[in-house]
Computed example of a mutant assay.
Amino acid sequence: MISAIANNIFQRAIEDYHRYDNIDHPMENPYDSQSLEHLLYLKCWIDTVQWHMEDFVRNPDIAPEDGLSWKRRIDKQNQVRTDTVEYIDSYYLQQFHDVNAKEHARINTESPAWAIDRLSILALKIYHMEQETKRTDVGQAHIASCQSKLTILLEQRKDLSQSIDELLTDIASGDKYMKVYKQMKMYNDPSLNPVLYGKKQ
């Protein structure tokens, strides 16, 4: 099942990142560049870097100019994240290219890759919530609260993993079909964002 593979890869990517815990440390993807595994590792590495960017930019003592610089960097990172999700969907579109959808086949509320995107983010929540349960500088109330949240996150991962596996099975059998829409984000496009194209007038 793809969810088990993805969850293992996400865990590896997160642990690899935290061996250095450095936003700028170069990624060393251990998987073949043409494989789905490569895309999954890349996806989670991008998410992990962005997670720590988001933490950093929330420092209340950050200088305004530094905060703006980080915000722009996060925007760029988020675009790379979106592009990678679309690469994963392209992989599945190719995989299911020859599947004939049944007459009453249904479309899912989200594509496989966007569901996998949520699974990657969930892996990060689980990792960091588990770290909170191991802190020695907080009281038992904090530990108990984080342990309770961790239990819920683990259940959520189980349910989401099952849903992803079922979705891919349904697409493979023709009971559901894939239809992918590009994100077409407007605020990053200098021809669509009025603030950006207005500067040229």
Rank of each mutant, 00 (worst) to 15 (best):
M1Y: 02
I2G: 01
I2W: 00
I5R: 15
I5P: 03
A6M: 09
F10A: 09
Q11S: 14
Q11N: 15
A13S: 05
Y17Q: 08
Y17I: 07
Y17V: 08
H18D: 06
R19Q: 08
R19E: 10
Y20N: 06
Y20T: 05
D24S: 14
P26I: 08
M27L: 11
E28F: 11
N29F: 13
N29G: 12
P30A: 07
S33Q: 11
Q34G: 09
S35A: 08
L36G: 09
E37Q: 15
E37C: 09
L40M: 14
K43A: 06
W45R: 02
I46E: 01
V49D: 12
Q50W: 05
M53G: 09
D55T: 10
D55W: 10
D61W: 07
D66R: 12
D66C: 03
G67Y: 14
G67E: 15
L68N: 10
L68P: 00
W70M: 12
R73C: 06
I74V: 10
D75M: 12
K76A: 15
V80G: 01
V80P: 01
R81A: 01
R81P: 02
T82C: 00
D83Y: 12
Y87D: 14
Y87W: 07
Q94H: 07
Q94D: 06
Q94V: 01
F96L: 05
F96A: 00
K102H: 07
K102N: 07
E103M: 12
I107Q: 04
N108G: 06
T109Y: 05
T109D: 06
A113S: 12
W114Y: 13
D117K: 06
R118F: 02
L122Y: 09
I126T: 10
Y127N: 12
H128L: 03
H128K: 02
M129C: 08
E130P: 02
T133K: 03
K134L: 11
R135F: 11
T136S: 14
T136Y: 06
V138G: 10
A141T: 14
I143S: 01
A144H: 13
S148H: 15
L150V: 13
I152W: 11
L153H: 13
E155H: 04
E155F: 06
R157F: 09
K158I: 09
K158R: 15
S161Y: 04
S161E: 07
S163W: 06
S163F: 02
I164Q: 03
D165W: 11
L168F: 02
L168Y: 04
I171S: 01
I171D: 03
D175F: 00
K176S: 00
K179Q: 10
K179F: 05
Y181P: 00
Q183M: 04
Q183N: 12
M184L: 11
M186E: 14
Y187E: 14
D189W: 06
D189Y: 01
D189L: 04
P190M: 14
L192H: 09
L192K: 15
N193I: 07
P194L: 12
V195P: 00
V195M: 13
V195W: 13
L196G: 08
K199M: 14
